[in-house]
């Protein structure tokens, strides 16, 4: 129990944005994660269990993650991409844990085609967890939202039946798309599936929307491109944070604090 507690504390403290404070510079050179990710992450709280991943950590000290869907490059480390940051972040903070992320992302792939590939990749690679960045291609291709939702639901159920956890990385926030009806319907469909299936989501859209609002409240000029960059750069941070919550956080409404204090530090028993 003490070991697990230490793991949680370590993970949480090691999760890059967890240690951000108002006095820090915009970008901390130690890990290169912009502080704005921590600000934006306030809006990304979702809680759900990751039972198969937790089990893999307990039994094997190794997790295998499959990454599907679009994989935008990370501005700060363009040779490796966003998932390598998650891999590094988890391995750095959970000593002895081996994280293997297999990136089979195909940008522009619709959810239906993605499901077919996911089935095959699960058979071939036997992952414990799936990161799926889904929805943008379907929104641009005008996939009927009800068809999209059905595909997403079937995929999540199929994954659960095959002992694979899933983290959905939702739609990107773009100012121009706030009133795009199809884009918003696809966003709603993702939220519905997450709620109905009780799965972990990276609230990408809400996070960057919150960041946009924060910056504008502060009177800082933020271009659409800045927001796109922020969205790309913060995904790794959001993923690390979400995994910390999903693996060790307690299900409930409070979530993890935005800065500094790990959930376990408040006396909650980590699983």
């Amino acid at each position: 129990m003490i070991g697990l507690f230490a793991l949680v504390v370590g993970l949480w403290l090691g999760t890059p944005s967890a240690v951000a404070s108002d006095t820090e510079p915009a970008t901390r050179p130690a890990d290169g994660i912009p502080r704005m990710c921590a600000d934006a992450a306030e809006a990304t709280r979702t809680l759900a269990n990751l039972p198969f991943t937790s089990k893999a950590i307990r039994e094997r000290k190794k997790i295998r993650v499959l990454a599907m869907g679009a994989t935008p490059l990370n501005e700060r480390d363009q040779t490796k991409g966003q998932y390598s940051l998650v891999e590094q972040s988890l391995e750095r903070t959970l000593k002895g844990l081996e994280v293997q992320i297999l990136d089979y992302g195909v940008s522009g792939e619709l959810a239906g085609a993605g499901f077919a590939r996911i089935r095959n990749q699960v058979a071939l690679d036997q992952p414990d967890l799936l990161f799926w960045q889904v929805g943008v291609a379907d929104a641009l291709a005008l996939t009927p939202p009800e068809d999209f939702k059905q595909t997403l639901t079937e995929t999540v159920k199929w994954l659960r039946e095959h002992d694979v956890d899933v983290v959905l990385i939702g739609l990107r926030y773009q100012r121009a798309l706030r009133k795009d009806p199809n884009y918003q319907k696809i966003r709603d469909a993702i939220r519905d599936v997450i709620r109905e299936q009780d799965i972990l989501r990276i609230g990408h859209y809400e996070a960057i929307e919150a960041l946009d609002l924060l910056k504008r409240q502060d009177g800082e000029p933020v271009t659409e491109l800045d927001l796109t960059d922020a969205g790309t750069n913060c995904v790794a941070d959001f993923l690390s944070r979400a995994l910390a919550v999903g693996l060790f956080g307690k299900s409930g409404k409070g979530g993890l604090p935005a800065t500094g204090v790990p959930a376990a530090g408040k006396g909650e028993s980590p699983r």
Binding site: V136, L140, Q174, E224, T228
Partner: peptide, 9 residues
Amino acid sequence: NPLFLEWHN
């Protein structure tokens, strides 16, 4: 719509 810049890889 900047999403077009990320479409199709």
